[in-house]
Design a protein around this nucleic acid. Structure first.
Length: 497
RNA sequence: GGGCCCGUAGCUCAGCCCGGCAGAGCAGGCGGCUCUUAACCGCAAGAUCGGGGGUUCGAAUCCCCUCGGGCCCGCCA
């Protein structure tokens, strides 16, 4: 069962040996002058079936998907990033020897280059009538079966390159993911935000409630952690006068995987001096509107992407956290409830929360249970109870609330924003509350951050968006593993020798 | 971490309930075919049935353990 023993691999190795003996290099260095396969297809468009294009020959390169030999002619399907193309090879153009080599050398999975003229076959398939065919890299391992492809979900993750080479829709989805990230940057750059980078390895991970990964520095002789959020370093930059900053980077949370969580994921956080959370709602609407258009352009075949521009057309709906929760749950006077009452209500709603959870935890659970699943259309949930949010500024006119919104769509969170707390004394008090609440997932006390606020942070609004989930929402992808190229997998057990 | 399910040829899958010679298609080999596109036709080959143990005259099939994965639940976005 070992690959090295496989008969198929042995046959392919034998071909490599033979090629070398014949003085032909199975892994040449370059292949100049190629155009995209789509260019050949375009050149075929005006041609009638059976006609051959005039003008100079074209050069293409790509991976062999199938070889169909018909005695003295052959069809070779290749594809490159632009799409598939049929090569039409005949002994008439290649000669007996050249044609014989083609059929003897080529296997599915090989990378080849071809020169020829565009033709449309009698059956109407745009093709390249090949006058030269060159092996560019021999594939020793055979590709997955040509019709069913690679189905095994484990192999698709462990050997993502095989998934990508075998499944054009997987390539298209990942391309869309990274082009959406590019569009995200372009949108923010256009609003004059500055992209920055801050450390991933920090003394104490803070800015969110999650279990950190730990590591050790030999230089500092100290235990360090991997960041769980971008928030606090970026706010320090507002103190420093950078005014509009954002960062797109990985954050790390030492938790289990499921269809919407993975321990290492991509976060975008943005901080905007002299703006508040109302300004930020407008920014988020503009941002999702722009990204939805881009998704529709990138994936015209994908129903979710195609529907995105209409779905994410501003303005988004707005609901009040407390009003909506009371309306959905039938609970009254939520803000007047004691911690014990809230805990009992949360447990009645099926949440399993430890007794010593921070007080806001119970409200979060209630909201998650009663409201989140009902939020399908993009909706801003606004004015969270203060207890849920230690880093947001208290509401300017509504006691017991903070100026915060989350954007939900399709039952999942697509963004989280506050008017930022910039009063150092209040920040210090909120950190202390969190610590005294104990429990596992309190926010870490960051004394230097309080110190930074003492120098004066401008009034500002901040935004966080989970980029993986943003991509999922815009592309209709149900598992986060389908938008993360190399999700974490367990070490495969060593084969017994 | 708890529950349910899956693992058979390089790939996609049968066979497992109800124990009795491990099958097919694709890919690969050989032969044929100058318009196919999941090309077609013929021949031959390819598997310690995830791993270990047990029950049995006999295990892919039943039992136990273990590894890997999927889905649901709990926790983090």
């Amino acid at each position: 069962m070992g690959d090295s023993d496989s008969r198929l691999v042995q046959d392919r190795r034998a071909k490599v040996e033979r090629l070398r003996k014949e003085g032909r290099e199975p892994f040449p260095w370059s292949f100049p002058g190629r155009v995209a396969t789509s260019q050949v297809v375009a050149a075929c468009a005006p041609l009638a079936p059976g006609a051959e294009g005039r003008g100079p020959p074209l050069t293409v390169a790509g991976r062999v998907r199938a070889v169909r030999v018909h005695g003295k002619s052959a069809f070779v399907d290749i594809d490159d990033l632009a799409g598939p193309l049929q090569l039409f090879a005949r002994v008439d153009e290649l000669g007996e020897e050249g044609f014989g080599r083609l059929t003897a050398d080529l296997d599915p999975g090989d990378l080849v280059g071809a020169v020829g003229r565009p033709v449309v076959t009698r059956r109407g398939e745009p093709s390249l009538r090949v006058t030269e065919l060159t092996l560019l890299a021999k594939a020793l391992n055979p590709p997955p079966e040509k019709y069913h492809g690679l189905k095994d979900p484990e192999e698709r993750l462990r050997r993502r390159y095989v998934d990508l080479l075998a499944a054009p829709e997987s390539r298209a989805r990942f391309r869309a993911r990274f082009l959406l990230t590019r569009a995200l940057r372009a949108h923010l750059d256009g609003l004059d935000f500055l992209e920055v980078e801050t450390p991933t390895i920090v003394p104490v991970a803070s800015g969110a409630a999650a279990n950190p990964f730990t590591t050790r520095s030999r230089f500092l002789d100290a235990e360090l952690q991997l960041r769980i959020a971008l928030e606090l370093p970026l706010k320090r930059l507002l103190v420093g006068g950078l005014e509009r900053v954002y960062e797109i980077g990985h954050v790390f949370r030492n938790e289990d995987l499921d269809s919407s969580h993975t321990p290492e994921f991509t976060m975008m956080e943005l901080y905007w001096a002299y703006a508040d959370y109302h300004d930020m709602q407008r920014l988020v609407e503009g941002l999702y509107g722009a990204l939805a258009s881009e998704a529709a352009r990138l994936l015209p075949e994908n129903p979710a992407a195609r529907a995105a521009p209409e779905r994410f057309r501003p303005p988004f709906a707005v609901v009040d956290f407390v009003d909506e929760l009371e309306a959905r749950s039938g609970i009254t006077d939520l803000l007047g409830r004691s911690r014990e009452e809230l805990r009992a209500l949360a447990r009645a709603a099926g949440a399993t929360v430890p007794d010593d959870s921070p007080p806001g935890k119970f409200l979060d659970k209630l909201f998650e249970h009663y409201v989140e699943p009902t939020l399908d259309r993009p909706t801003f949930v606004v004015d969270f109870p203060a207890a849920t949010t230690p880093l947001a500024k208290r509401h300017r006119s509504r006691p017991g609330r903070v100026e915060r919104f989350e954007l939900f769509a399709g039952g999942t969170e697509l963004g989280n924003a506050y008017t930022e707390l910039n009063d150092p004394d209040e920040q210090e008090a909120r950190f202390r509350e969190q610590l005294s609440a104990r429990g596992e997932d309190h926010y870490a006390y960051d004394a230097d951050f309080v110190e930074a606020l003492r120098y004066g942070m401008p009034p500002a609004s901040g935004l966080g968006i989970g980029v993986d989930r943003m991509v999922m929402a815009l592309t209709g992808t149900s598992s986060i593993k389908d938008v993360v190229l190399f999700p974490p997998v367990r070490e495969r057990p060593v084969d017994l020798l």
